[in-house]
Amino acid sequence: MNDALHIGFLLFPQVTQLDLTGPAQMLARVPGAQVHLLWKSLDPVPTDVGFTINPTTTFADAPQLDVLCVPGGFGIEHRLDDEATLAFLRRQGAHAKYVTSVCNGALLLGAAGLLRGYRSACHWMWRDLLPLFGAVRVDQRIVRDRNRISGGGVTAGIDFGLALAAELAGDEVAKLLQLAFEYDPQPPFDCGSPETAGQERVARLRTLQADTIARVRRKIESAHAATAL
Score class of each variant (00 low, 15 high):
2 N>R: 12
3 D>P: 02
4 A>R: 15
5 L>D: 11
6 H>I: 05
7 I>T: 10
8 G>C: 11
8 G>T: 06
9 F>K: 01
10 L>G: 04
11 L>K: 02
11 L>Y: 03
13 P>E: 13
14 Q>A: 15
15 V>L: 14
15 V>M: 08
15 V>H: 08
15 V>K: 05
17 Q>M: 13
19 D>V: 01
19 D>K: 01
20 L>D: 02
22 G>I: 00
22 G>L: 03
23 P>Q: 11
24 A>R: 07
24 A>H: 10
24 A>E: 14
24 A>S: 15
24 A>P: 06
24 A>V: 06
25 Q>L: 13
25 Q>I: 10
26 M>V: 15
26 M>G: 02
27 L>K: 07
27 L>E: 06
28 A>W: 01
28 A>Q: 12
29 R>G: 03
30 V>P: 00
31 P>N: 04
31 P>G: 04
31 P>V: 02
33 A>G: 12
35 V>S: 10
37 L>C: 08
38 L>K: 00
40 K>D: 15
42 L>S: 08
42 L>C: 06
42 L>N: 08
46 P>K: 14
47 T>W: 00
47 T>Y: 03
48 D>N: 14
48 D>V: 06
49 V>N: 11
49 V>E: 12
50 G>I: 09
50 G>V: 06
55 P>Y: 10
55 P>W: 09
56 T>P: 10
57 T>Q: 09
58 T>V: 03
60 A>I: 08
60 A>F: 07
61 D>F: 07
61 D>I: 07
62 A>S: 15
62 A>N: 07
62 A>G: 08
63 P>M: 13
64 Q>G: 09
65 L>Y: 10
65 L>P: 02
65 L>S: 02
66 D>V: 10
67 V>T: 10
67 V>S: 05
68 L>E: 11
69 C>Y: 05
70 V>T: 06
70 V>Q: 00
71 P>Y: 05
72 G>L: 04
72 G>P: 00
72 G>F: 01
73 G>W: 12
74 F>W: 13
74 F>E: 10
75 G>C: 05
75 G>Y: 07
76 I>A: 05
76 I>D: 01
76 I>T: 13
79 R>E: 11
79 R>H: 10
81 D>L: 14
81 D>W: 02
82 D>A: 12
82 D>N: 15
84 A>P: 09
85 T>R: 12
87 A>R: 13
87 A>E: 15
89 L>Y: 04
90 R>C: 06
91 R>C: 10
91 R>H: 14
94 A>F: 06
98 Y>T: 03
99 V>K: 03
101 S>F: 00
107 L>T: 03
109 L>F: 09
109 L>Y: 12
110 G>P: 02
111 A>Y: 01
111 A>E: 05
111 A>W: 02
112 A>C: 08
112 A>M: 05
114 L>W: 03
115 L>I: 13
115 L>E: 07
115 L>Q: 11
115 L>Y: 12
115 L>C: 11
115 L>T: 12
116 R>M: 03
118 Y>S: 14
118 Y>W: 07
119 R>N: 12
120 S>G: 06
121 A>Y: 10
121 A>R: 03
122 C>M: 09
123 H>L: 07
124 W>T: 04
125 M>E: 14
125 M>H: 09
127 R>L: 05
128 D>L: 00
130 L>Y: 02
